[in-house]
Computed example of a mutant assay.
Amino acid sequence: MNFNRFSRNGTRGELLSFLIEISADIFGIKDDKGNGYLVDKVLDKTGMKGTGKWTVQQAAELSIAAPTIASSLDSRFLSGLKEERAQAAKVFKSIGVSDILTDQDADKQKLIDDVRQALYASKICSYAQGMNLIRAKSIEKGWDLKLGELARIWKGGCIIRAVFLDRIKKAYDRNPELANLLVDPEFAKEVIDRRSAWRRVVCLAIKSGISTPGVSSSLAYFDTYRRERLPANLVQAQRDYFGAHTYERTDIPGSFHTEWFKIAKQSNI
């Protein structure tokens, strides 16, 4: 593969990878049986061999958050509902919901750069999730896998091979016990530098009625992971309310249970 074909200003771009290269090839092929490009004639119904399902199942069993990977799998499931989607499109079109809202203004060159940055930030999140899953399985099985070495091996010949893998190896070389790629100093800076473009792309997609599950779920992963405190306290309170599952407090050690219903009922008397 000639990675240099996709360099930016003569340099090796951050998104250079096998999948980016073949995508560029696909987009450039004309339809020899009609007008336009061949990719537009390919049925939008994705096949699968089961590896995505297995990955998400493993993530669930190991309690590893992998929303980007899961959203990709869900997208494949939804793509398989071709007939249902065709009917749904008719239903929503009949009540005035168009496929794409066309009243969104965007500078083309700015949007291209924003998408590039958003894709790279999302890619960091996706690999972070995958690496965390591999590490958890390695701990469970006692494999003692070296994540940096895995990145090096993948770059040698794999569908995910990319220039980006060099950065991952260096991150784990710097800190073999790295909890998450997002907190590696270099990756953290790159995500922060791209966060505005990332949000602009997601916002524009939402306003335009375009589904971007991978980019959107990656951003949600980042926004969740970077916060010290989450609204999960409400979920735990709900679990204690309906199932007496108990909860921990932020100010006092131990497990607690509250008769939420009784207190709420007394307060309303």
Score class of each variant (00 low, 15 high):
residue 268 N to Y: 09
residue 26 I to D: 10
residue 133 L to M: 09
residue 15 L to H: 07
residue 227 R to Y: 09
residue 5 R to A: 13
residue 19 L to F: 02
residue 173 D to M: 06
residue 245 H to F: 05
residue 174 R to K: 14
residue 182 L to R: 02
residue 21 E to Q: 13
residue 81 L to Q: 13
residue 146 K to D: 15
residue 253 P to A: 00
residue 35 N to R: 10
residue 70 A to C: 12
residue 163 V to K: 04
residue 71 S to V: 03
residue 136 A to R: 10
residue 132 N to Q: 15
residue 5 R to K: 14
residue 128 A to Y: 00
residue 180 N to C: 11
residue 249 R to A: 00
residue 233 N to Q: 10
residue 161 R to V: 02
residue 130 G to C: 08
residue 257 H to Y: 09
residue 59 A to H: 00
residue 88 A to K: 11
residue 88 A to Q: 14
residue 141 K to N: 15
residue 217 S to K: 01
residue 193 D to I: 05
residue 233 N to P: 04
residue 243 G to H: 11
residue 101 L to K: 11
residue 147 L to F: 08
residue 180 N to A: 09
residue 30 K to I: 04
residue 251 D to L: 13
residue 90 K to M: 06
residue 58 Q to D: 12
residue 234 L to M: 15
residue 44 D to S: 14
residue 73 L to F: 12
residue 44 D to P: 11
residue 219 L to T: 07
residue 164 F to K: 04
residue 61 E to F: 01
residue 35 N to I: 02
residue 192 I to W: 00
residue 74 D to R: 11
residue 56 V to N: 07
residue 221 Y to M: 07
residue 174 R to Q: 12
residue 156 G to I: 02
residue 100 I to Y: 05
residue 255 S to R: 15
residue 24 A to E: 13
residue 182 L to M: 15
residue 258 T to K: 07
residue 115 V to H: 02
residue 61 E to S: 07
residue 252 I to E: 03
residue 161 R to I: 05
residue 257 H to L: 00
residue 78 L to W: 02
residue 142 G to N: 08
residue 126 S to M: 01
residue 60 A to V: 13
residue 88 A to M: 13
residue 232 A to M: 10
residue 181 L to E: 00
residue 31 D to H: 04
residue 18 F to L: 12
residue 23 S to V: 09
residue 74 D to A: 13
residue 9 N to E: 05
residue 2 N to T: 15
residue 133 L to D: 07
residue 228 E to W: 06
residue 236 Q to V: 00
residue 170 K to F: 04
residue 106 A to M: 10
residue 260 W to G: 03
residue 43 L to N: 01
residue 108 K to I: 15
residue 215 V to N: 00
residue 256 F to C: 04
residue 205 A to M: 09
residue 99 D to H: 06
residue 251 D to S: 14
residue 58 Q to V: 08
residue 147 L to A: 04
residue 265 K to G: 02
residue 235 V to L: 14
residue 53 K to T: 11
residue 68 T to K: 02
residue 160 I to N: 03
residue 34 G to Y: 02
residue 42 V to D: 04
residue 222 F to H: 08
residue 162 A to N: 03
residue 5 R to Y: 00
residue 206 I to T: 10
residue 51 T to V: 09
